[in-house]
Write a protein that binds this DNA or RNA. Structure first.
Lengths: 356, 356
DNA sequence: TTGAAAGCGGTACCAT
DNA sequence: ATGGTACCGCTTTCAA
């Protein structure tokens, strides 16, 4: 029977509670929120009872001003509806919840200028932590301004964490992009593929670059060649357009197209079908990230699993400073071979390749 | 050359700005944030200059305490990573951004108890708006407590908006679930389908119930029969399990399975394939919502388009109270016929059906 | 118009 | 341990 009694007009304040309990403001505060308990148990009970009766809930804003610190985590993503970012966000929210922190989200729509603007706006919240998960370009003209902004924020006691690598020197959740892509390429050459193309993000997007570099290295080791590289937006439509162009120019011997992330890969597969070809049969496709949906495609997509929720959780831990050693290490990725890259039995060296 | 000068240790306060500009606190406040401008232009400029120089950014928490009102929108979803909710969230965030409001998110994980808990927690933020987008059950035991909580919140000046219908009487963004499902059923019978099954959410989930009821009505009108109904979680795995059971029991003449949302439909299609059958050919499948990914499936999924981002935007407008007449009307849905429900030419009354 | 000062809801120091 | 009180950063009334 906890009465929702504060139906008056304004929520009960600590003052109300103190009065109701017949104790001082200070005691009420200590009973309710004070860290080290040094309150007479009887008083304490009276305060708790009064608080319950009045349906008291401490005003976070007021606590924030008084304490000089908030319980807010500010999260910046490129696009909330994008499965990659929504998974990361889910991880951040889950971890924040454990730490009793509140998460605020904003979307940059992949516009660096907007990102900078948003970071500036977010300062008003005085968030304890600022997580930047919108994939960024290394050579963006706004970078210096962004860095200045973030440094100032840190100087004021804020903690910054990036989700994918940048050239900016802040705490960063690193993903084994290079290693994962290299492993993928090795597996693919092991399956008998030799001639490749890649659809990737703009030059300068670190994630894309790392994945491409890793893929290249793996091909080299495995005897494959990367015959063409198309750069597009890091989106479904970018992937579609990239594949469309590849096909338009003539696939012409290319056996497999690697898209630098799954969202692009989805678009790429769609373009293959729209061209009247069959993904997997006419041209193999591989992606990166293993977002849940790609298992459901036909054929299911070969990709490199990235534990995106874990990435989100880590970003928060890292920013908070209570990262374990494990948290500091790059996030491991894992190749997942599926039917979009069937084995090419016909190729000469299609021998068994250990999946290790 | 806007100097990020506040590299001291704490962000510049309005006090600092006032001193720097050689004016009073009040004047500084009025110049920077005051609504009606009644400040001498010269002073005003001095304040603005000082603010820029000190890289001043008003402390939102402090403003909230002083004003007695925040600029926060609290959003509750079932699961941020779920494409349905992430799209709604994207809409809320976008609209909030327009209104210069900050969005905080939390996930209920579909647990009504947790939802109640979260609502209570959120009170601490004193959000101006609380949007509940986690699909709820009508008969949940926590409902009365939730309602009490929300009423109290409203009594304190808060605005509540629900995203899908409940029996709770609050502002609600209504979706044409019934009409959409009915239209879908009509189209499907028009295509020659006669024998149906449905996979839906638990009885009591309004969205699921409305869609099922609409579908039933449409079948009746079109001469189809709903031979079986399976109830499962409103998730991908729920859809999978539902279809698995249907197949296990023997499809046995059922031509088309309607899943009450696309996420379930995705799971259902997967189960069809895992059973060695071909969706669309052996059994047709239809969903609801038209999340972006279902176009990409093989076969592409027939569904009922729901403008989810718009739903999110509306929820905020509705809560804010600046909803237009259009905003008050139910959100229109639209049948999208795709290859997962091919026309059945063989059926006797497979005549032309106007798509109107 | 401007500035002094009284709050807003809390926290935390300092005597008692 | 408890209560009085200064103070957090900002808004807003009230006089001047």
């Amino acid at each position: 029977m906890a009465g929702a009694h504060s139906t008056q007009g304004a929520p009960a304040t600590l003052h109300d509670v103190a009065r109701e309990a017949g104790v001082s403001l200070a005691t009420a505060s200590r009973s309710l929120n004070g860290s080290t308990r040094k309150v007479n148990e009887e008083y304490r009970q009276r305060v708790l009872t009064a608080a319950a009766k009045l349906n008291y809930s401490p005003n976070l804003s007021a606590q924030a001003v008084a304490r000089g610190t908030t319980t807010t985590v500010a999260l910046l993503v490129a696009d909330i509806a994008d499965p990659i970012f929504s998974q990361i966000a889910a991880g951040v929210v889950r971890e924040a919840d454990r730490e009793r922190l509140v998460v605020t989200v904003a979307a940059t729509d992949r516009d660096p200028e907007r990102e900078l603007e948003l970071v500036r706006t977010m300062r008003g919240q005085r968030p304890r932590v600022l997580i930047l998960a919108a994939s960024r370009r290394e050579d963006d003209p706004h970078n210096t301004a962004l860095e200045a902004e973030l440094r100032a924020y840190e100087a004021n006691g804020g903690r910054v964490a990036f989700v994918s690598a940048t050239d900016l020197d802040f705490r960063t959740v690193r993903v084994d992009n290079r290693i994962g892509a290299e492993a993928l390429a090795r597996e693919l050459t092991g399956l008998g593929y030799r001639r490749f193309a890649a659809i990737t993000g703009d030059d300068g997007i670190r994630t894309a670059d790392e994945r491409l570099a890793g893929f290249r290295a793996g091909l080299e080791a495995g005897g494959g060649t990367l015959e063409r590289v198309v750069r597009q937006d890091f989106t479904r439509d970018g992937g579609y357009e990239g594949m469309r162009r590849l096909i338009e120019q003539g696939l012409d011997g290319i056996e497999l197209v690697f898209a630098a992330n799954d969202v692009m890969a989805v678009g790429a597969m769609s373009a293959v079908r729209d061209a009247g070809l069959t993904p997997g049969a006419d041209v193999a496709v591989a992606g990166f990230d293993d977002v849940p949906i790609v298992r459901e495609l036909t054929p299911p997509l070969t990709t490199v699993r990235t534990p995106l929720e874990e990435v989100g959780r880590r970003a928060l831990r890292l920013a908070l400073g209570d990262a374990t050693e494990e948290d500091e290490a790059p996030v491991r990725t894992e190749v997942v071979l599926r039917a979009s890259t069937p084995g090419r039995a016909s190729t000469r060296d299609a021998e068994q390749v250990p999946t290790a």
